[in-house]
Amino acid sequence: MSILDVKNMHKSFGNTEVLNGVGFSMEQGEVISILGSSGSGKTTLLRCINFLERADEGQIYVEGNLVFDAAETKNRSAAQIRKAQLNFGMVFQQFNLFPQYSVLENITLAPKLLAKERGDFKSNKKEIFSEIEKNALELIDRVGLAEKVNNYPCELSGGQQQRVSIARALALNPKILLFDEPTSALDPELTGEILKVIRALADQNMTMIIVTHEIGFAKNVSDRIIFMDRGVVAEEGSPEDVIDHPKNERTKEFLSLVDRK
């Protein structure tokens, strides 16, 4: 069974149609990179999957369960949307760390708040919180920031901030991790450290969707490439097929314009 099924997504902003019937499905452990020129709808697709935007048409299934259907007349409750949202982790282009919290607090904030909804929270508060902190410290170590646990985001480089934001997303054990151009706000010499972290996650079988402009990286890390153009999937397939032997005219044009290394 597919872990994620996205069907026939449509989304317009005013008169501008950004998504024009996008669909795909993915398996557990698969890594998909979405490529395409600016305005092709990649980021909007990601934001619709993650409920940051509401699609005008389409359905989303996670492990076969319907979590979104634009045709539903009755709006889902905020609690239902939150629950569906937690299937996904999201890494933003601009990191969006919370500036007033330390690295550790950024990562533990959401797990601690969610833990309050657990039935055994009152009786086991101490154990639950120390478990959350232990887990957060492991994640910080995994992204190579063990020495920055108590630093604030403003004291970190862009690359370090982005690694914190990856750890923050992982702390909630999402089924699928979404990356929205994770290296686009970084200096070129800092993108490598992020790509290394994503590579390591791929090796650990994390299911990921990566919107990116790093063609070389996408080719290296992905099981499948989706090339989007004008709100539709123009071409999809293995990295070798799409990047080295593109069939679609728009894909060819796009790849000829970007740096492929």
Binding site: L52, L86, G89, F92, N96, L109, A110, S165
Partner: peptide
């Protein structure tokens, strides 16, 4: 910045 709200939202925080 709206990103602060969105980051909270995707982490499952209520409004």
């Amino acid at each position: 910045p709206v990103g602060q709200y969105e980051a909270g939202q995707v982490l499952g925080l209520t409004k």
